[in-house]
């Protein structure tokens, strides 16, 4: 049932934990240990704010096994405010609302249920920002 596979990604799925490159300072998500910009080791953990905007999006009508009951649903490329792009579903909005440049924030939602007795996988999705975020 791939329990360990989902368990070891919990920091990424629930908290959007990526990395910072020690050498060039670029922020990385997903974490990859070798910086994609300068190829130096990047192992300093960094928790992303979860704020970003829609870079591109699609509505999936023909869903893969495990997602049939969710269709139609929207998957987007979200450009996080720190720079990286993350692939994630859009949620808490109608199918015709999305647009390129739409401000969004990360929330935790159910991603998939592996059958009646299987595990329920939770993770990040993104929803429209309905109010100005609090600035500390």
């Amino acid at each position: 049932m791939e329990v360990s596979r989902h368990w070891r990604l919990q920091k990424q799925r629930y908290e959007l934990v990526g990395e910072t490159c020690d050498s060039c300072g670029v922020k990385l998500f997903p974490p990859r240990d070798v910086c994609l910009e300068c190829e130096a080791p990047a192992q300093e953990l960094y928790t992303f704010t979860g704020l970003g905007e829609v870079f591109s999006y699609t509505t999936i009508y023909d869903a893969p096994a495990g997602f049939e009951h969710n269709a139609p649903y929207q998957v987007a490329l979200i450009k996080l405010e720190e720079g990286p792009i993350v692939t994630a579903q859009l949620t808490d909005m109608a199918l015709d609302e999305a647009y390129i440049g739409m401000p969004v924030e990360m929330v935790t939602r159910k991603l998939r249920t592996d059958g009646e007795e299987g595990m329920i996988v939770y993770g990040y999705k993104f929803r429209p920002i309905c109010f100005e975020p609090v600035v500390n």
Partner: peptide, 8 residues
């Protein structure tokens, strides 16, 4: 990071 978000 792609398929688990339902991407095809």
């Amino acid at each position: 990071y792609e398929m688990m978000q339902g991407l095809t």
